[in-house]
Design a protein around this nucleic acid. Sequence first.
DNA 1: CGGCGCATGTAACTTGTTACATGATTCC
DNA 2: GGAATCATGTAACAAGTTACATGCGCCG
Lengths: 181, 181
Amino acid sequence: MRQTEFVILGLLSESTLTGYQIKKIIDVRFRFFWSESYGQIFPTLKMLSANHLIEEIVVQEKQKRSQKTYQITESGLTALREWLCVPVERETIRLEILLKMYFSHLVYAGSMLEHIIKFQKAHEQDLQMMNLFQRELETVLDEDENHPQVLRVIDFGQKVNQAYLDWSRETILFLERKGKK
Amino acid sequence: MRQTEFVILGLLSESTLTGYQIKKIIDVRFRFFWSESYGQIFPTLKMLSANHLIEEIVVQEKQKRSQKTYQITESGLTALREWLCVPVERETIRLEILLKMYFSHLVYAGSMLEHIIKFQKAHEQDLQMMNLFQRELETVLDEDENHPQVLRVIDFGQKVNQAYLDWSRETILFLERKGKK
DNA sequence: CGGCGCATGTAACTTGTTACATGATTCC
DNA sequence: GGAATCATGTAACAAGTTACATGCGCCG
């Protein structure tokens, strides 16, 4: 869980959060390059806490529902900084759609067409969301926060998603021609 | 091992192969969108064989070294065709480099710069390899084989890798400006 | 008072990697 | 003769998902 550890430390370096909030942030802000499930977040939180890289802070506001908010410790921040300087080692990419495209001559073209249209729609939405993030961030841009770095990440998402959409458009044309023959 | 199953069936639908050859093909041709380890290939081969989706053919040429060549069966081909028509369900992307970029304001810019340069070099090579594949395939283009579909897959790789390189260039400039301040 | 969203958690399972063992063949 | 590549395989481990259980608070 090396990697999960550091996503969590990273997010906690910005603000205190609950496990649930961490999951939500990853699902929204990181969706085009990362994902985590509760099955990893909660055990990792427990582990980080046992190693004193994070601490549970009990914000007993009135009679709030059960809620564990975590904050990063000094050693957590140190560990995060160290990790940031270690060379990137894993780059996991598994695109089932390309596997299907590669072997798609074995089935009728209409089937592949459906897959691509679905793919295209999903990434159109992703791109719109990124454009929104970008505009929002630019209106409150603070050079002393991590905003410029976040904009670079958003830019990555925009470029890659644009490439996906260009490819989808061309591939749909290709399949439509195939289908007619 | 759902997915591993189908990569193998797909490759065996083109030619008979050994486990070792399957691994090599995935490492070279699919490297920008897929990966498999021996730890998955060999057990999956065994399992597919037990289910009669593939068959072991013993090509006892002279006193060849131990070698198991597999070929797809009719039911294997049927299973593959069915899978090709089922909607794409998984799209795994985990880019550690973006995670590091996102939180990189916590460390000095030079560190991130190294990561990006390494990333850029790796993807320059990938792009060159794809350009080579493309040229090779276009010289022997056969519309009745899967060549047009493979070219679409290569095109995906080229577009996405080009996006990676554009982003790298811009991000290196960004970090160099940061570093000087 | 019903449903949704917030919130936590785990057990069972699937998936995937790593490290290791083994040994033949090919090429320099 | 030694290195690289071909070739097969597994055990231990690490990572990740899914399905489920639980229950509060808020809004209509």
